[in-house]
């Protein structure tokens, strides 16, 4: 199961020629929204995703049952930034339930394996796993009071 926005991104990648997919990933890396000021000042509250090859941080908030995502990835790591851009465009603002139901291996069906070593594609799944874990943690916290 994929939320509609993410499904559309996956479909765009899958149906685009190889060269185009690289350009699309680059566009997502450029369109990643900057980290909000409140996180810049409180960087320690972000979770580091150790599975990524470069420093990569994610923060999750729940707002009216919807998931808000914030990322910090350095410009010199455009591929990881591209992953973040895709997740921001595909999952930010989506319901808690939809995020938790997102198929963990969606990245494998995007045709990126020809571009990025399959071994290294798993960074995207690792980011998603961290997001889900934080969503679960924060939902339980809010339910518990």
């Amino acid at each position: 199961m994929l939320p509609a926005a993410l499904e559309e991104i996956v479909e765009d990648f899958r149906t685009s020629p190889r060269e185009m997919r690289l350009q699309m990933l680059l566009d997502y890396s450029r369109s990643l929204p900057p980290l909000p000021e409140r996180y810049v000042d409180a960087h320690e509250t972000l979770e580091r995703v150790a599975e990524c090859q470069t420093p990569f941080f994610v923060a999750v908030e729940i707002e009216d049952e919807r998931v808000r995502l914030f990322f910090d990835a350095p410009p010199e790591a455009p591929t990881t930034r591209g992953y973040a851009g895709i997740l921001a465009a595909g999952l930010d603002g989506v319901s808690v339930r939809e995020v938790l139901e997102t198929s963990p291996d969606f990245a494998l069906s995007m045709g990126l394996g020809e571009l990025v070593s399959p071994l290294r594609l798993r960074g995207m799944s690792a980011i998603l796993a961290r997001i889900k874990r934080q969503v679960v943690m924060r939902t339980e916290t809010s339910l518990g009071g």
């Binding site: 690289l22 990933l25 890396s29 591929t79 990881t80």
Partner: peptide, 9 residues
């Protein structure tokens, strides 16, 4: 490069 997109940037 290590990063597949770095050249493009």
């Amino acid at each position: 490069d290590e990063d597949v997109l770095l050249y493009e940037t």
